[in-house]
Amino acid sequence: MSETAEEDLPVALLVDDEKEVADAYALRLRGLCDIETVYDGQTALDHIETGEIDILLLDRHMPGMSGDEVLDRLTEAGFSGRVIMVTAIDPGFDVLDMPFDDYLCKPVDREDIRDAVAQQCEILGYETLGEYFSAASKRSVIETELPEEKRTEHDDYQTVVERTEQLRDRATRLLDDAEQLFDTFEGIEREGR
């Protein structure tokens, strides 16, 4: 990923009750993503419910709501990003049933945390592209076949329009080559002859 303005970067939320540790990891991620740092599980869920977070870096052992509890509540909180556990807890067989995408044992060096976040951003970027291409194909065929006055009155169509715009923005934030991929997609003739 290139060095760009913060609003163009993936958004990461780092959750750790040890302020110094969280702030140190946040510094290591500077320039790679727009990093937000919180120090407890409930505040993490509040952030997730109010904003689009691409990558969640989550400590397991925290007072109050543990990282494991946060992990269990992500779906109901509307989280659609990737989760990296960053923790001092040595993994056991319990991790086999936990819905995370990567697991880093503390202490984590600068390059490892940056590489893990970059990798998860790329994975999420391509997942997002898949969703975008599916929604954009539907949007395109409707725009080709139905007049604008019918489209503007159809709620499901408007939902697809909004969703494609959100997905395009997210993919652009996550992937350096997104615009080239959009151009290729848009260059495919989908209209009947």
Rank of each mutant, 00 (worst) to 15 (best):
G78F: 07
I89W: 06
V70I: 01
S137P: 00
V38T: 13
E52M: 15
S134Y: 11
S137Q: 13
G67R: 07
V160N: 06
F79L: 03
T144C: 13
E149G: 12
V70P: 04
P107F: 06
D54C: 11
V117G: 11
V38W: 11
L58R: 02
E49Q: 14
G92F: 00
H47Q: 11
G125R: 04
M62S: 08
E149I: 05
K138M: 13
T87Y: 04
E36L: 15
Y126G: 02
D68C: 02
Y132G: 09
D46H: 13
C121W: 07
T75A: 15
H47P: 02
I142Y: 08
F100Y: 07
R114T: 02
D34W: 03
T152Q: 14
E153G: 14
E149P: 12
A116K: 04
D68Y: 06
T128W: 05
G130N: 14
Y103W: 04
G67M: 00
Q158T: 00
T152Y: 09
R139N: 03
Y126H: 14
D101K: 02
I84D: 09
E149K: 11
D72S: 13
V141A: 12
E127K: 01
T75F: 03
G51S: 15
V117P: 07
D59Y: 00
G51Q: 12
G64W: 00
G67L: 03
R60M: 04
E127Y: 02
T43F: 02
F100H: 09
G51E: 08
L58C: 02
L45C: 07
F100N: 09
Q120T: 04
R82A: 09
Y39G: 11
I142W: 09
D94A: 08
P63M: 10
D54Y: 06
A118V: 04
D40L: 09
G81V: 06
Q42C: 09
C33K: 04
Y103G: 00
A44S: 10
I123T: 09
P63Q: 11
M65C: 01
T159A: 15
Y126E: 10
A135D: 10
G41L: 01
D155E: 14
G31P: 07
A88L: 06
M65T: 06
L74M: 06
T159Y: 08
E145T: 10
G78C: 08
D94W: 07
Y157K: 11
T43W: 04
M85K: 01
E76W: 00
A88T: 01
I53F: 03
A88E: 08
D97N: 14
P99Q: 09
E122Y: 11
A88V: 07
I48P: 02
S137N: 15
V86D: 02
I142Q: 08
F133N: 01
A88K: 00
G41I: 00
R114P: 03
V160Q: 05
P99E: 01
V117N: 11
Y39F: 12
G78T: 08
E52S: 14
Q120Y: 05
D156R: 09
I142S: 13
A118K: 10
C33M: 09
E127S: 10
G92M: 03
G92E: 02
R114K: 10
P91E: 01
V117F: 13
L124K: 08
M85A: 14
G67S: 07
T159S: 13
T75W: 06
P63S: 13
V108G: 11
L146A: 14
Q119N: 14
